[in-house]
Write a protein that binds this DNA or RNA. Structure first.
Lengths: 329, 329
DNA sequence: AATGGGTGTGTAATCGATTACACAAATGGA
DNA sequence: TCCATTTGTGTAATCGATTACACACCCATT
């Protein structure tokens, strides 16, 4: 491995000068600069980031903590993050909790030990140890998708999205609307979307029967099972529409409905949230809400970079959304 | 920031001993170990990976170079890689060429400067500068999806997959089979899959008309356009089936066919490759080939870890595949 | 009692960069 | 001509870990 010392020797300068050439700071004569560049080219010298980062306390790496990488939402977000940070010469250090909540904290500490310059977290839950770990890390930090008190958060407008969607279903004349959601550990998807739905129903003077609600775990299969359960436990008073909190679960639900010979939307209308690519190409195409995940990722990255430059921008940003009306309702 | 020196002082030992406790090597008395652990707990001390890596030349990070992160294949592969490496305490440093070939080389050098312990590359093309850069890097290296001479490669069996698929279409009685592919810069998808298709057709004594072939760029839209072109330029001698080299393009092609009132598979049969989730839920469900991307990622990671342990396993591994027969043909 | 190996701990060099500081030469304004 | 800047370069400390080496102690064996 060639080091800065080798370069210095070969170019007949001190390593100070080499460093100055490479980092473009301080005074360097044209002739010295040329000699150094020359040698660097010839040797294909690559500086050690470990050494640099040990000295400077900056690594040029930003850590990303995902609940699950192989997911459409996550990969879109990472795409958006990458687009922004790579332009500024940063790399992404990726960690994936595989849906184990406790790993979020573990990974924050791990990223910290790797001297990442900042962290973007896609949380799936909120709890005190987590907040404490973030506080401790003393690093630029962005939360995406969940609002974390005291942390710059980029959130989707889950509540109003759910309100709009529910309103739309009501406008279509439906009164008996079932609900397929996820557990309440997830404040965004589990709580806010449900609240948006429930509040709107209440406002319309409709009480949602307890057995019109069912809960899954984000998977297509769980959507299928939830739908099955709702249908089976409401043989004589069946809902005419179902509000599902994610596209994937909605797809699963549709699968069950189709199997059972329901016509969509005539016998049962259905809606999702998330604008998965699939939602457009499935038959019938799924009415859903686009959260612009990629933009959210980019936005998160931009805010993080701002924080890195010392601009203290602790704030909450609510991402906008778009209701995509299609054929399933 | 607390350092190893602080811990040493607080525990009344030398930093050597602290290091020994933390790395579990060398002799340490039970009492010293306890004192150190005690202090480590209390202070929440996190060792600096930069310093460690500067000294040891190992970073515990493996670099992954992707053509495009926000893609189902890529995110599945990364999921597989992550599952394996995270178990061994490694992290993933992610880079995304966004389909710019020249960035592959740039990123190899960049990862090198970051002292990654190894690299997994999902190449989309093969050329000499690339091979040279890999050679230069002198790092454990795995290529996934493309065979790179002299580099441990995990490849999908593109040729036989295409052969099997084509054979299957032929068995269904089709003779006029169109082809939607991608450019030949991509040896795996562009060349091998095409060769598998062409060879099989030839063997069956069928010549494929030039205007039954069309080429896209992996996107759904390009599949749509390719299909349109084939239909429009074959008004009086239309094919009865179309072999598409990726699921996404196949979905686009189906979209066009449906718009134009073709019944699938009665008027036109269609097949894809890749087993996108969507392929199962679209109507009609798409006959495709599962490449087990996640397993391929895991396998790549395992081979890389083997190489890291000095086992020189330079070889080529061909991943198996599975033909999924569904309703589109 | 002498010898030798197993234990336990510390000293100090080292990894490869950055940067504060010192110093010399060149430049320019009065 | 003289002094203050500006420009150019080098010396050496520093970042926070690992590890070769030295040393001391304890205990069992001869």
């Amino acid at each position: 491995m060639t080091t800065i010392n080798d370069i210095a020797k070969m170019a007949n300068v001190s390593r100070t000068t080499v460093s100055r050439v490479l980092n473009n700071n301080g005074y360097v004569s044209e002739s010295a600069r040329k000699r150094v560049m020359q040698v660097v080219e010839e040797t294909g010298y690559i500086p050690s980031v470990s050494a640099k980062s040990l000295r400077t306390k900056r690594s040029g790496v930003i850590g990303v903590i995902l609940p699950k990488i192989s997911t459409e939402t996550a990969s879109r977000v990472v795409g958006g993050i990458n687009e922004v940070v790579s332009k500024e010469g940063f790399q992404i250090l990726l960690t994936d909790t595989e849906l184990h909540h406790e790993k979020e904290i573990e990974y924050i500490r791990l990223l910290q030990s790797r001297h990442v310059d900042g962290i973007i977290l896609l949380a799936t839950n909120v709890n005190d140890p987590l907040l404490h770990a973030i506080e401790e890390a003393k690093l630029p930090f962005i939360s995406l998708g969940q609002e974390l008190p005291g942390v710059t958060s980029i959130v989707y407008d889950d509540y109003h999205a759910a309100v709009d969607m529910t309103t739309m279903i009501l406008q279509k004349g439906h009164k008996k609307i079932a609900y397929i959601g996820v557990g309440e550990e997830d404040p965004a998807v589990g709580v806010l979307r449900k609240k948006g739905f429930m509040d709107t129903m209440k406002k319309a003077g409709i009480t949602v029967e307890e057995n019109w609600c069912s809960y899954g775990d984000f998977s297509i299969e769980s959507g299928y099972e939830s739908m099955k359960q709702i249908i089976n436990s409401n043989r004589e008073n069946s809902p005419t529409a179902v509000f599902v909190v994610t596209d994937r679960m909605a797809i699963g639900a549709m699968e069950y409905l189709k199997e059972q010979g329901f016509r969509i939307p005539e016998d049962m209308a259905i809606t999702g949230i998330g604008a998965a690519v699939m939602s457009k190409y499935i038959t019938p195409s799924l009415t859903t809400i686009d959260y612009f995940n990629k933009d959210a990722g980019s936005k998160a990255a931009e805010l993080l970079l701002e924080q890195l430059q010392g601009k203290n921008t602790r704030k909450k940003i609510t991402q906008n959304y778009r209701l995509i009306k299609r054929d399933s309702v």
